[in-house]
Write a protein that binds this DNA or RNA. Structure first.
Lengths: 119, 119
DNA sequence: AGTAACTTTGCAACCCGGTTGCACCGCGTA
DNA sequence: TACGCGGTGCAACCGGGTTGCAAAGTTACT
């Protein structure tokens, strides 16, 4: 059951949202998929990305992923195909915060047009 | 009417969400406030920030603000008081995108604990 | 003032993603 | 067999955002 979801996720090049997942599993229930994603996330198999599209998307974590403050990579949201990609090779640059601000995590989403839509 | 909203916005230190606005204007309608914010945004008076809290927040633009790709500053979301601040002095660092990816805009939200909640 | 054209507001309804409670199913174990 | 438990499906709900429509207000022109 969850196996199926994991299979799908591992075959995706782009991050996938819950509604999208619902569509490709016509049979399965929204709540089930929702809970599946949640447990995956708790177990650090996947991470979520808020790309501002209104739906949170999910993608597999890298092997090395600690899912801790510094595992962080930049995400790219294509405004044409509306897909979201992990730029695993692009770490989030460090930021100088004002005094007395402590850093927990960073969400960095770059929008633009991806290679496939560039033509 | 919109004057009131503008007044409130200019008095805020933190960005404000639509639902929050609704609360402080018990009298006014959600739709009105919503449309007000939209027109303000079209006229580049304010900009919106998606801090991942589930509600989009709005804050005044700086005088110099072009609201174009490079006006961009980092935003800070405090996980304690759940307020969002513009770090106007902290520009978004530039990113090297993979080949054939074009850049339109960048959303960068740093989460952590703000100075006031730090004690 | 009177009217026409346009803007702003309020109400209500709707959409959609996310979330939860509950009952049911299937399975392993005592 | 009886029990407990995890996974599933259904249904309902919540909350932010969005839109259509009609009423109220505004402006301009006569």
């Amino acid at each position: 059951m969850r196996q199926l979801v994991l299979d799908v996720l591992s075959k995706q090049k782009a991050a996938i949202s819950l509604p999208e997942l619902e569509d490709m599993f016509e049979k399965a229930d929204k709540a089930t998929l929702y809970r599946t994603l949640k447990t995956f996330e708790e177990n650090k198999l996947i991470h979520h990305i808020d790309d501002g599209s209104g739906a949170v998307k999910y993608a597999l974590c890298q092997e090395s992923c600690e899912c801790e403050p510094e595992d962080l990579h930049v995400h790219f949201y294509c405004t044409v195909c509306q897909k979201t990609f992990c730029l695993n090779d692009t770490p989030v640059p460090s930021i100088n915060l004002p005094k007395d601000f402590s850093l927990e995590k960073v969400n960095m989403v770059v929008s633009g047009i991806c290679a496939s839509c560039q033509k």
